[in-house]
């Protein structure tokens, strides 16, 4: 239908179904880096419901969720686990500071994985994340 967003790849649809069943925070981006969904557990950490936040281009979510290195310097998309998963197409794990849409600054551990639908086709990325402490490995 004209003007309607294109059909999502089945891997993203199933990822969203998985996310809705998890108590672990999960964030899903499409192949262009566009935020397409996060679950209720992520809403607690990101500070806003997905219904309120809506879909966002990569520039949108990387600026709205203020992300910093452990030393407090701003973290570029290329350094974020989610960015590495999308741009380098490999899994990545790391810790970072994030200031959510509720203004709270939290230390997070993030594991991001690219979604390969075939050997060469990445259709998106999922990132699982949880609150951490400086002492956690």
């Amino acid at each position: 239908m004209e003007g309607r967003p294109p059909q999502k790849h089945l891997a993203l649809i199933i990822a969203r179904e998985l996310a809705t069943q998890l108590a672990t925070a999960m964030f899903i981006a499409d192949a262009q880096g566009r935020l397409v969904f996060y679950n209720e557990a992520a809403e607690e950490i990101l500070g806003k419901t997905f219904a309120e936040a809506g879909t966002m281009a990569a520039e949108g979510w990387t600026s709205q969720f203020r992300l910093e290195e452990l030393d407090g310097t701003p973290m570029s998309l290329e350094r974020m686990p989610a960015g590495i998963a999308l741009m380098e197409q490999r899994p990545a794990h790391g810790k970072l500071w994030m200031t959510g849409l509720d203004g709270q600054r939290r230390l997070l551990a993030v594991t991001a994985v690219p979604l390969f639908a075939s050997e060469t086709e990445v259709v998106g990325m999922i990132a699982l994340f949880w609150q951490s402490t400086p002492d956690d490995p």
Partner: peptide
């Protein structure tokens, strides 16, 4: 759908929707 209500989903998130539209 698995674990979600069909009525709650936007069309692009419904498996197979574009084929049947």
């Amino acid at each position: 759908v698995l674990g979600i209500e069909l009525a709650d989903l936007e069309p692009e998130w419904i498996s197979g929707h574009a084929l049947a539209e």
